[in-house]
Structure formats: structure tokens, C-alpha cells
């Protein structure tokens, strides 16, 4: 094998090892350790200077008791469930909002499309944190939305939006919307419009053509968009802590608590490893789906 081929093949593996495998091994190792009042705050630490015997003791001190601990307390699985639930419904809402937008852009005159795409991407030029903070201003009891609704007379008491799950949903849908629009748009744009014409010529209704032609053809874009929203939403920390109330217990907040309040890095790491395992399932399903898709083509 010549060097060129080797470099070509090895480069992606190198990044995978450097950016995923090694950090994962470190986190996994901490999850098997015990907390300690020291720098770093866990024990044992890897020490090569002690020779083989030190390495032996090092491994003998690792155990799975932190994972057992996660099972003893309702908090963890309930938080995982809340996170999955919030991520799932956010994904559904995002899809409902994003699909018509993507469809509209794909059907817009060719010369307008770049500008419409620009409008979708433009908010990304502002810091994510600032955009989430602005939502506090919009949703607050004395905020823009409530003042507007009071002014036009739809409500006579301010709606309680901030610090509720509704605010978390709004925040997630808003933040991740472009991740859903872009892949769906990319799919719809490639679609051959003569297929729809053909369907209609053959007596299919407009709605029927949408269900049996447009939607199936946009499927891989929809799946990709859902993954891009669901996976980061599950571990979301910033949005629930800024917009959510104290009863919004997503796993990101639990993880924060383990790290910062309990100073228990080993338990925090095991929470993270379990979260990773939960996230792997949709990714594997997605991979399978992609493979099947490729085989069909």
C-alpha cells in the first residue's frame, strides 16, 4: 500500500480517534473511578512512573458502582425520560413548522431562493446565547408578547410562559429550525416536478400526489433533519436552564448538578456515558435506514 492511499484512508480515522474515541475513553475511565477531594477530583489517576504494578492497582480500583448508583435513584431515569419526551415533541413541532417553509422555498422562483435561504441562515450570525436571552425578553410576564396580547385585548391576565416547559419547546424549535429546513429543502429542490404533473395527469388529486410522491421523496431529508434536531435537543442544557422552570428536569441539568453541585465527576461521567448509549440507538437506526436507501437505488 503506498503512502498516499494510506494517508487518505487514515485521515478520517485519525480524527475519529482523536476527537471521539480518546475523549470517550477518558470519560468512561472517570465513570469507573471514585470521587476524591483533590485535583483532579477523582481517584485513581493514571501514573506510568509506578511501572507495571501501579498499572495493575490502577485497573483493580475501577468498578461499575456509579452505574449501579444511577439505578438506585428515580431522578436519573425520570430525567432521561423527560429529555427524550421534550426532544421528541420539539422534533415533531420543528418538523411541522419547517416542512412548509422548506416546501415554500423549494417552490419559489429560482432567483428568489438564494435570498430566502439567506433569511433562514442570517439569524445564525448572532450569538446563540443572545438569541435565547432575547426570548426571555419576549416571553417574560412583562415581556413583548404578553404586552402585545394584552394591548390587542385577547387576554386580560399575562400568560405564564417564561420558566415553563412551553418556553423550552419554543426555544428549542426556534433554535433548531434551520437544521430541519436545510436538509428538507435540499431534498425537495432536487425533486423533478414533472413527476407531480404525471401523477395529476394520471388522475391523482393534488393532496394524493403530495402524500404519494412529494413526501416519500423528501423522506431522507426529513429523517436527517429529525436527527439533527433530536440528538442535540436531548442533551440541551442552555435552553432549559434559561427558559425553563425549576421543575424542568432535563438530563443536561442533572449532569450539571453532578459536576458542579455534588462535585462527583465519576457519577457525572456515568450519566454522560448512559446518555451517549441512548443517543446511539437513533443514530444506528438512521444508519440502517440510509443503507437500505442506498441499496434500493
Amino acid at each position: 500500500m503506498n503512502i498516499r492511499r494510506f494517508t487518505l484512508i487514515f485521515t478520517p480515522y485519525f480524527w475519529l480517534i482523536a476527537l471521539f474515541l480518546i475523549p470517550f475513553i477518558i470519560v468512561f475511565k472517570i465513570s469507573l473511578s471514585d470521587p476524591a477531594l483533590a485535583i483532579p477530583p477523582y481517584t485513581p489517576n493514571f501514573d506510568l512512573s509506578g511501572g507495571w504494578s501501579a498499572i495493575g492497582t490502577f485497573f483493580s480500583q475501577l468498578d461499575f458502582e456509579n452505574y449501579e448508583f444511577l439505578l438506585t435513584d428515580d431522578l436519573y431515569w425520570k430525567s432521561y425520560l423527560t429529555s427524550i419526551k421534550i426532544a421528541f415533541f420539539s422534533t415533531v413541532f420543528t418538523l411541522i413548522v419547517a416542512f412548509p417553509i422548506a416546501y415554500g422555498i423549494a417552490k419559489a422562483p429560482l432567483h428568489l431562493r438564494p435570498m430566502l435561504m439567506m433569511l433562514i441562515i442570517l439569524p445564525f450570525w448572532t450569538s446563540f446565547l443572545i438569541r435565547v436571552y432575547s426570548w426571555i425578553g419576549i416571553l417574560a410576564n412583562e415581556g413583548i408578547l404578553n404586552n402585545f396580547l394584552l394591548w390587542i385585548g385577547i387576554i386580560d391576565q399575562p400568560l405564564r410562559l417564561i420558566n415553563t416547559n412551553i418556553a423550552v419547546y419554543i426555544g428549542i424549535v426556534y433554535t433548531y429550525l434551520p437544521f430541519m429546513i436545510l436538509p428538507i429543502y435540499a431534498n425537495l429542490e432536487k425533486m423533478d416536478s414533472s413527476l407531480i404533473e404525471a401523477a395529476e395527469d394520471l388522475g391523482c388529486s393534488r393532496i394524493g400526489a403530495f402524500w404519494s410522491i412529494t413526501l416519500p421523496m423528501a423522506k431522507s431529508g426529513i429523517v436527517a433533519g429529525c436527527m439533527l434536531v433530536f440528538i442535540p435537543a436531548i442533551g440541551e442544557f442552555v435552553i432549559p436552564s434559561l427558559l425553563g422552570g425549576s421543575s424542568t428536569n432535563m438530563i443536561g441539568k442533572v449532569l450539571w448538578g453532578e459536576f458542579f453541585s455534588n462535585r462527583d465527576w465519576p457519577v457525572a461521567s456515568s450519566v454522560a456515558v448512559v446518555l451517549l448509549a441512548i443517543l446511539m440507538i437513533p443514530i444506528i437506526l438512521f444508519q440502517r435506514h440510509q443503507q437500505k436507501e442506498n441499496m434500493n437505488e
Binding site: L75, S246, S247, T248, N249, V254, S261
Partner: peptide
């Protein structure tokens, strides 16, 4: 103490 705090805040 921290667990109690979570329980108070979130009911879990």
C-alpha cells in the same frame, strides 16, 4: 443536601 434540593425544586 443537593438531592433534597432537586427533590424540592422538581418533585422527583
Amino acid at each position: 443536601v443537593n438531592r433534597l434540593w432537586t427533590k424540592i425544586k422538581s418533585g422527583i
